[in-house]
Design a protein around this nucleic acid. Structure first.
Lengths: 348, 348
DNA sequence: CTGAAAGCGCTTACAG
DNA sequence: CTGAAAGCGCTTACAG
């Protein structure tokens, strides 16, 4: 593999000059630059990224971390995604990877030795990452503040955190939940339950808030016994729904905290002899790929994955090249009506 | 951040010695080693991974690539996984990440500038990756041979490739398909269709083979009109099943190429008025998390994800430390009977 | 505009 | 057993 030395020799210049035309870091006489450029292609030169990093430049690497309501970096990115509760993030990741790769950056999932937030930042620094993408971190996490203080450009996705070199991107989950509830209200439902994800989570908290607000706006009292909170896992949503049904059957619709949770909700409803949507309507969130293949196809509120991903990468890259104080990006959601919602029983 | 210089000064030795105790690369007098170790902890020293890489060592980084039947490295890892057809690999990745992280390695998804296989290898070399994990590469890919020739330790997962520093890990998809078909045969089915993934794919090809073999062993003739091939996507499985139904309805069971494909199959069956399993039984492969929440809960053949992942990482790490000629690992699958299979209509 | 030199933080022969 | 030196491949002040 050709080194910058080889290129320099071939072009009859010094390595410094080669570096300069490569990085456009200083003015080079057009003729020389041209010679260098020729040498560059004829040697098939590729800069050694490791050497570049060592020489002080930040590497062209973005660290990725997914830490749903866990205060510890040890909570691994993918491991957190593994339980199907996080399929949505996977679909998001797909777009994220595309954008980052197109910008010529590598994505790295660093292994964290300890679970201390100082160590976390140190690990990123040691790898000289250009920036960090943090998915689903809770605002009060130690890591959030450590990262903001570190000055490493970072964007929080579905999390909140702001600083000179930090900002965030998220869907408006409050409005999304309002959309879901309005839809149900519009169909004639009045007794609407919610099987929500953890309120310690941004989306969990916001969806609950939206649910309450929309109910209020519709003149429907919020009934605490219809509010369930659990994890984003399908199995837990199933259990929570079973518990809800044991408590009361006085509802005709349920807002599930996510599409995957909706699967658990629907299964519980059915096992107890309730039909969806004729007895109970169910609406989810995210609009994960498989929604339309569920039985019944799931009515849900879609998060705009491409907008979320490209927004996040755009902001991150802007900060990497020095921009500061970027405003957060709030992405609107969209109701997708399929067949898991219908008017309540006595109302058709 | 403390450098090895700092540690050396504090311990009253040279950087070389620090390096030696760190890497155990040479004998150091116990007393000195002890002093160094003290200095190590009191300075909270962490080696600079970038510098280590540059100094000639391979980095503690494993490259990850997912290239289902694509001859191009441009086909991005996650992007390939994004269509839900690859949820299984995501669940696998979860285990992979855990194992790799525990071993102290980072996982990197390198961005590939071109789609040439030489460039591919070069990219890995430039990043000084310790090894590569290739998921679902086709044996005849250019990349497969380039990688084997490169000498970079690599293990192919759900792919095939062998060399001094390359080996593979996979489920026995043939046996898995036989399991599925035997189960159906045992229930009394004789007319069994298959909606398979691409035969250009290892699992697609093997599952078809197993299907044919099991049928033969059961004395049931293989009928070409009952064999469909499509992608691993749910939507395509849906379409293929619709097409199959237009051709013939003379079957009482279908073997789907994967769980996600099974979702498409079931949906198509239902839309055409067929009930599952009373009219038609359906069996999938993989045993993805959500199988038990489908309606009906899906009978499937489970791939042993933990065994696949830990086997792959173990082999890779062995090669990273110099072992050569590792034998491939074939992992057995297991039938999981749920409720999408039942005896054929007239036979209960 | 361009080159010689120093430096990024480590490791590894080479001497002793 | 241990240190001084060279080197990994690049970049960036510093001179000119």
């Amino acid at each position: 593999m050709a080194t910058s030395e080889d290129v320099a020799r071939l072009a009859g210049v010094s390595r410094a000059t080669v570096s300069r035309v490569l990085n456009g870091s200083a003015r080079v006489r057009p003729a020389t630059a041209e010679r260098v450029r020729h040498a560059l292609v004829s040697t098939q030169y590729r800069p050694d990224v490791v050497a570049q990093s060592l020489a002080g430049l930040r590497s062209k690497t973005i660290a990725l971390n997914l830490l749903p309501h866990a205060d510890s970096p040890k909570a691994l990115s993918l491991s957190n995604m593994g339980d199907s509760g996080h399929y949505f993030y996977l679909e998001l990741l797909q777009f994220l990877e595309r954008e980052i790769s197109q910008a010529g950056f590598d994505l790295t999932l660093p292994s964290h030795a300890s679970d201390d937030s100082t160590e976390f930042v140190r690990t990123l620094r040691l790898r000289r990452v250009a920036g960090a993408l943090m998915i689903a971190t809770h605002p009060s996490d130690r890591i959030t503040s450590a990262l903001i203080a570190s000055g490493i450009p970072t964007v929080f996705i579905d999390g909140i955190g702001q600083g000179p070199q930090a900002t965030y991107v998220k869907s408006d989950h409050v409005a999304a939940a309002e959309l879901a509830v309005h839809h149900l209200l519009g169909l004639g439902h009045r007794r609407i339950a919610i099987v929500d994800g953890p309120v310690a989570t941004l989306s969990g908290a916001e969806r609950l808030l939206g649910y309450q607000r929309a109910l209020g706006a519709g003149g429907v009292p919020v009934r605490p016994e219809l509010i369930c909170e659990t994890t984003f896992g399908t199995a837990d949503a199933f259990r929570a729904t079973v518990a809800l049904l044991e408590r009361t059957r006085d509802f005709t619709a349920v807002v599930a905290g996510s599409d995957l949770m909706a699967m658990g909700v629907i299964r519980a409803l059915r096992e107890r002899g309730l039909r969806v949507p004729s007895d109970v309507s169910v609406v989810g969130f995210d609009d994960v790929d498989l929604c339309e293949y569920l039985d019944p196809p799931l009515t849900t509120v879609r998060q705009d994955r491409p907008a979320l991903a490209s927004g996040a990468v755009r902001l991150l890259l802007a900060m990497v090249v020095g921009q500061t104080g970027c405003a957060p990006l709030i992405v609107p959601s969209e109701l997708v009506v399929r067949q898991s919602t219908a008017p309540p029983p006595g109302r058709r």
